[in-house]
Design a protein around this nucleic acid. Structure first.
Lengths: 100, 100
DNA sequence: TCTACATATCGGAATATCTAGATTTGTCAA
DNA sequence: TTGACAAATCTAGATATTCCGATATGTAGA
């Protein structure tokens, strides 16, 4: 849990919007061809479309959120699915409460 | 409580170090000529010396922390004293826990 | 193998942040 | 009212972030 890495990831409103959208994926992102949005997570292109960013930016933002421990990734075939990492998020919230 | 403003303020390790140093000012900053360090807070020049920044940077970082609601300011004569705003800090910790 | 498609990586322009030195402002005391 | 000092503001160069388009990589099916 690198708290500084997490804070930098959260310092961008678009990345926070992605994290927020993933609370209720079906409501925020268009349906995807394969993979259950609730079980597997949301694929990059669906997040891209929902959030309105370029494909490259979407991909790197998601990697950044993942390195910060805020989302979890599952790769299957051509698709990469992202979902919130609730454990990581709680750990961060706790670290803020304890250390700040 | 502008959560984005707070996160941006915390996105800089030096500002976090200031906030952290203010938990125990007497241990982290040199004594000041006037004003009780525990009651009034710590003056800008003492923080500057303790943290090792230029005067101008110290002053603007403190203003930024104050606008974010993380520190409180008291001006008396030539001196400006800063201390942690524990209410603001708790509010932020709670907002992270609830909203993130 | 060839093609199509999802994602990742690269390169770069625009913008923001960091931080210092120089200058200005405000306050006190002589 | 002048001098000294604390803090704030201004200016600017170095570095980091934002975000895109172009290209590369990996996988599945024909």
């Amino acid at each position: 849990m690198n708290i500084h890495l997490v804070i930098k990831a959260l310092a961008n409103p678009t990345r926070v919007a992605i994290l927020n959208g993933l609370k209720n994926p079906a409501a925020h992102f268009p349906p995807q061809d394969e993979g259950d949005i609730a079980v597997d997570g949301v694929c990059v292109s669906s997040i891209q479309e929902g959030i309105g960013l370029s494909q490259s930016t979407t991909s790197s933002y998601l990697e950044l959120l993942q390195r910060a421990g805020l989302v979890k990734v599952t790769r299957r075939g051509r698709w990469t699915y992202y979902k919130r990492d609730e454990d990581g998020i709680s750990q961060f919230a706790e670290a803020v409460k304890q250390q700040l």
